[in-house]
Design a protein around this nucleic acid. Structure first.
Length: 461
RNA sequence: GGCUGAAUGGCAGAGUGGUUAUGCAGCGGCCUGCAAAGCCGUGUACGUCGGUUCGAUUCCGUCUUCAGCCUCCA
């Protein structure tokens, strides 16, 4: 029985979809004006695992992850770069897809873009005006009147009167309440704009998610996810917009993932303390980054550092080493269901990936024990490890190809093989001095040799 | 100021009202020509002060510290 922590109720609840066997899920994706950093990677990986697990459980999942391709930051960046705005967003959407593919993220079923939804956004703004939740300001902006929405604050647990509006940013005088937010923004001359009943303009930040999610998944759907920082105001505002416009409940379960931190501080663009995914992948295999993300439960903060990534690499090496050389494709999965049951119990508990990973390590130990005397058993267990790994999006490549992967330019595989052949000859002649010399030469190049009864295997450190 | 959440062994990170998380690192052993990998064994960890309890790291309260939201941010 799957339990999910729901931000709305602040507790774990047994998950029950609106329509039996079907799950509709919407996740706030990226605003495309820069490369993805590790924090974005976390959102993608976390919800990728959520969707993989839901599918594993047999649900028919419709997964929507949006792209916000019009907003203040994008406009500003285009001006800075002297770049056409569409060219800018196209460039970063392509980069986003590349990063996602590297991280073995299954593409969402629908990836709607804000600029393709202007008509539907305008309709929703009009509905909000008609329903009395919005007003046109003296600047010709359309604003949402939060005081009209009785439940405002229900997601983030905030009391409107307790908030320090204007503490850090000047309040726009044209607003009726300092926390009212823009639905439709009147355009300046040189900005991208679309025609609307309120003059030419563009959507405010929150409305596009309400319009896209409702259109793709219906007025009322199962799960809505995103980073912690979107809880307020973004998701709070989405609720106000969608429920104000449709007069129906919006979302059943709200899921929010924790931040990636650096030196105990949130990784963010504004602090400038971020690493982009592509930077990290210059140093580490993408699966190492994915594994690192899954070593923390998704709601907990996660601390990013080279040491952590090194540790992740070591751990993943252990799992792949267990899989190495096993003929898993040609043997059935093990009959022993205890590992799968433990794995599932962990995942059923609000996607507890660290505990699920612990099961994979126990399974690996079992494989390593079996491989010396019962290769068939080892391979069957290996098959199981591979299948469970798949739910986490891990362990799907050939073990050799992970263990021997070149990230930074190093000695070639052919050269290594040659030296190993040379060393095997020396060993045959019991010329240990030569054998050891070759081994330590390779060690200096970060190549580790492992002798066994069949010959010598190697891997890169 | 309001609201969230967190404090676990050398590091990372789960979990539990009484019994082994897991990974890395360390130590001892087996294996090995020697290694590496693997296997076996090995650590009086649960921020503070109180309370509840036969018993609390686990429940309740106090305090301390840290992080996040209340501007844009995943």
């Amino acid at each position: 029985m799957l339990n999910i922590y729901n931000t709305l109720t602040r507790k774990k609840e047994i998950f029950k979809p609106i329509h039996e066997n079907k799950v509709s899920i919407y996740v706030c994706g990226m605003t495309v004006y820069d490369y993805c950093h590790v924090g974005h990677a976390r959102v993608m990986v976390v919800f990728d695992v959520v969707v993989r697990y839901l599918r594993f459980l047999g649900f028919e999942v419709t997964y929507v992850r949006n792209i916000t391709d019009i907003d203040d930051k994008i406009i500003q960046r285009a001006i800075e770069n002297k770049e056409d705005i569409n060219q800018l967003t196209a460039r970063f959407i392509e980069a986003l897809n590349e990063d996602a593919a590297n991280l073995n993220i299954i593409p969402p079923d629908i990836e709607p873009r804000a600029t393709k939804y202007i008509d539907k956004i305008i309709i929703m703004v009009q509905q909000l005006l008609d329903n009395g939740y919005a007003y046109v300001t003296t600047n010709n902006d359309v604003c949402y009147a939060i005081n009209k929405f009785a439940d405002y604050g229900k997601l983030s647990g905030k009391q409107v009167e307790d908030l320090r509006a204007g503490e850090r940013v000047d309040v726009d005088k044209s607003k009726q309440h300092p926390l009212d937010f823009v639905l439709w923004k009147a355009a300046k001359i040189d900005e991208p704009h679309w025609q609307s009943p309120w003059g030419s303009g563009r959507p405010g930040w929150h409305i596009e998610c309400s319009a896209m999610s409702t259109d793709c998944l219906g007025k009322h759907f199962d799960i809505h996810g995103g980073g912690m920082d979107l809880q307020f105001p973004h998701h709070e505002n989405e609720i106000a917009q969608s429920e104000g416009a449709t007069k129906e409940p919006f979302v059943n379960v709200w899921m929010h993932n924790g931040f990636v931190r650096i030196n105990n501080e949130k990784m963010s663009k504004s602090l400038g303390n971020f690493f982009t995914v592509r930077e990290v992948l210059k140093q580490y295999h993408p699966e190492v980054l994915r594994y690192f993300i899954l070593t923390s439960q998704y709601r907990s903060p996660s601390n990013y550092s080279d040491q952590e990534l090194d540790a992740a690499k070591q751990a993943l090496t252990r799992l792949y080493t267990a899989l190495r050389g096993l003929d898993i494709e040609n043997l059935p999965i093990s009959d022993d269901k205890t590992y799968q049951q433990r794995f599932q119990a962990a995942m059923d508990d609000d996607f507890n990936t660290p505990e699920a990973l612990a099961v994979l390590f126990d399974l690996s130990r079992e494989i390593n024990k079996a491989r010396s005397n019962d290769l068939t058993k080892a391979a069957k267990l290996g098959n199981q490890l591979w299948h469970l790994g798949k739910i986490l999006g891990l362990l799907q490549i050939e073990a050799e190809s992970f263990l021997q992967a070149t990230i930074i330019e190093q000695i070639s595989s052919a050269e290594i093989e040659n030296m190993i052949t040379e060393r095997l000859l020396a060993r045959k002649n019991r010329d240990w001095a030569t054998a050891d010399r070759i081994r330590s030469e390779l060690k200096e190049q970060n190549i580790v040799l492992e002798d066994n009864s069949e010959g010598t295997t190697w891997r890169r450190l």
